[in-house]
Structure formats: structure tokens, C-alpha cells
Amino acid sequence: MSRKALGQLEAEVLAALAGRGGEAGTAELLPHLDADLAYTTVNTVLFRLYEKKLVTRVRAGRHYRYRLAVDESELVACRMRDHLRHASDPGGVLSRFVRTLSAAEERKLREILGGLDDPR
């Protein structure tokens, strides 16, 4: 993926947007973000995401409604790959990551790995 790396706040806003069904206005996203952020801050982040073509927008009165233009799981997977690629010990990073998974997440990971047809 050739896009610029996402900042933490951009990633949180994208996740909140995905959690709202992929479409929302700035005010609708505020209560779904971890930090106590100003409306203008979230609006600026959404505008930057729009400039990066990660969201689209449609005017709704005096404001905009934003919609995801990309698959959130692809974005997160790309960020994880970037982190692994830059780690001096990718195996150690993966090991620590797996140890932090919930039981449900671990079951899902095992299901995914068990379903791979890898001829290696």
C-alpha cells in the first residue's frame, strides 16, 4: 500500500467510523473516541483522511457526513506489516502480540491459520 502511514488519532477516527457502520458526521464520532477531543480536532483529522482518500464526504446542511472509502481491516493489516517489517525481531513481536490475545481472538487466529493452504 503506497499511502502515508496513519497516525494514532487517524486510526482511532477510522475505527470509530467503521464502528458506526462506515458513515457518520463529526459530532456523531466524538462520543466513540477514546480521548476527550475537541470537535475541531476530529474535524481536522477527518479532513486529512479525506485528503488521503481514506474517506469520502457529502455535504449535509452546514456539515459533512464522512464514509469509509477503504477496508478498515486492510488498513490495520498494513500497519501491522509495517511494524513487523521495521522490527529487529519480528518473531519476538509476533510472540508478544499473540500472548496478548483474548481467548476469542486466539481461537479466531487458530481458525484462520488452520484454513490457510500454504504449500511451504
Results as ranks from 00 to 15, higher is better:
45 V>G: 03
33 L>T: 04
97 F>A: 15
66 Y>T: 03
46 L>E: 00
58 V>C: 05
68 L>D: 09
22 G>V: 05
110 R>I: 10
33 L>F: 03
117 D>E: 09
8 Q>L: 11
16 A>R: 05
63 H>N: 14
51 E>L: 09
44 T>C: 07
69 A>E: 06
101 L>I: 12
92 G>A: 11
28 E>I: 00
46 L>W: 01
13 V>N: 00
115 G>D: 10
113 L>K: 10
13 V>H: 00
120 R>W: 06
113 L>H: 09
53 K>S: 04
70 V>C: 10
29 L>K: 05
85 R>H: 12
18 A>H: 11
11 A>K: 12
28 E>V: 01
12 E>C: 07
35 A>S: 09
21 G>E: 15
49 L>D: 05
12 E>W: 04
46 L>T: 02
89 D>A: 07
24 A>H: 02
117 D>C: 01
17 L>K: 00
25 G>R: 08
4 K>E: 09
86 H>Q: 14
106 E>S: 03
39 Y>D: 08
35 A>M: 08
57 R>F: 04
47 F>E: 13
20 R>V: 04
42 V>Q: 00
47 F>C: 04
54 L>R: 01
32 H>G: 04
6 L>M: 06
54 L>H: 01
111 E>N: 15
101 L>D: 01
13 V>G: 01
96 R>M: 13
82 D>L: 10
68 L>W: 02
20 R>M: 14
51 E>K: 10
7 G>P: 03
26 T>V: 08
44 T>N: 13
23 E>C: 09
16 A>N: 09
115 G>A: 15
10 E>K: 13
34 D>Q: 06
24 A>N: 05
11 A>L: 13
108 K>Q: 13
35 A>Q: 07
2 S>P: 05
104 A>R: 11
111 E>A: 15
111 E>Q: 12
74 E>S: 08
85 R>L: 14
103 A>W: 02
72 E>K: 10
58 V>D: 03
33 L>E: 08
111 E>H: 14
